[in-house]
């Protein structure tokens, strides 16, 4: 039971923070299929920064870890500017832009990883090794049955994510900026008439989605994969898009959707292990979260409403 919660949370939280990023972008009116590429680019920049800091400047692993996250946030946000630029300034089709941003991120990061490894470190390798991050247990609280598992073997990034998620929720629902952002996604014409700079708000929202996706990508790189490589692009970005649509573009229900993915996944693995089944059966168990999602969606999709101006190019001249 405990390990279901421990593993479940370490998968749920990165997914959740990426989904929040998606919510920011989409609530401002910019369709964001680029999450997959944004998290990969963030993880690549972060991993590279940590690797250089450790191997060239002798920084201890512990501080390099936080440096990696800092650079992942910056890398994700800067790369997201490309999506923002295309969608807002160049009026590109947002779905197309998202797909291409993913394609570019995948090819560019793998290409750069190989080239940098060859040129700078003299080794033909297609990955940047990071190792799995250390885990911490909160003494005292962790002894409480069931609930204590949430405080056992916690990755430091889970703390970063919880803090970032809370901040993101606060900004979205409790500040003027959040209100303006949501207005831009529902009725940009009215928002513009009220004196808001729609383009700027959307631009920053897309950058936020990049920054948060960067955190997610870095978390996956430090937990499941223990490295940066092309393997990182397994579709978790798309999974978080599914979660945010399931959560109807609101933050708290999206957390629920992410928890379904996270816990069904870890429970499935646990089940296969406990029953002593051959590992092939874990494939069968792995479909559980997705089947469950589809069934739940059948009941809860009736009122599922996307932001009204989602995906529309905002043209001031047409007001």
């Amino acid at each position: 039971m405990n390990s279901i919660i421990i593993d479940g949370m370490s998968f749920t939280l990165p997914l959740f923070i990426m989904a929040i990023g998606g919510i920011y972008s989409e609530r401002s009116g910019i369709t964001n299929l680029a999450l997959e590429g944004l998290q990969g680019m963030g993880a690549f920049i972060g991993a590279l920064a940590a690797y250089i800091a450790v191997n060239c400047f002798g920084m201890p692993q512990g501080s390099a870890y936080y440096l990696a996250f800092l650079f992942a946030i910056i890398g994700g946000a800067v790369y997201a500017m490309l999506h923002a630029l295309l969608c807002i300034r160049f009026k590109a089709n947002q779905v197309i832009s998202g797909v291409v941003i993913n394609l570019l991120a995948t090819s560019l990061t793998v290409f750069l990883t190989k080239s940098i490894n060859k040129a700078a470190f003299g080794a033909a390798s297609n990955k940047i090794d990071l190792g799995v991050s250390a885990r911490y247990t909160v003494p005292g609280i962790s002894n409480i049955p069931v609930l204590g598992a949430f405080f056992t073997d916690v990755y430091p990034f889970e703390l970063i994510i919880v803090a970032a998620a809370f901040l993101a929720w606060f900004v979205m629902y409790r500040t003027p900026y959040g209100l303006h952002l949501r207005a831009c996604g529902d009725n940009p014409h009215a928002a513009d008439a009220a004196g808001l700079d729609v383009a700027r708000i959307r631009f920053t929202a897309v950058m936020v989605s990049g920054a948060l996706s960067g955190i997610a990508g870095m978390s996956f790189a430090y937990s499941i994969f223990a490295k940066f490589s092309g393997d990182l692009y397994v579709g978790y970005g798309f999974l978080s898009i599914a979660a945010l649509i399931f959560g109807s573009w609101t933050i708290l229900p999206t957390l629920g959707a992410c928890m379904i993915f996270g816990f069904a996944r870890s429970a499935g693995y646990q089940l296969v292990q406990m029953a002593g089944l051959p590992s092939a059966y874990s494939d069968l168990i792995m479909i559980l979260p997705y089947v469950l999602t589809l069934i739940l969606l059948m009941f809860f999709s009736k009122n599922n409403q996307s932001p009204r101006a989602l995906g529309e190019v905002y043209d001031k001249a047409r007001r």
């Binding site: 299929l33 579709g235 798309f238 999974l239 898009i241 599914a242 649509i245 399931f246 792995m286 479909i287 997705y290 089947v291 999602t293 589809l294 969606l297 059948m298 999709s301 009736k302 599922n304 996307s306």
Partner: peptide, 16 residues
């Protein structure tokens, strides 16, 4: 029938 967004259902079916 259920108003399920095609992006979500096709991603789910891909995995399944």
């Amino acid at each position: 029938k259920f108003n399920i967004n095609e992006v979500v259902s096709s991603i789910m079916l891909n995995y399944i």
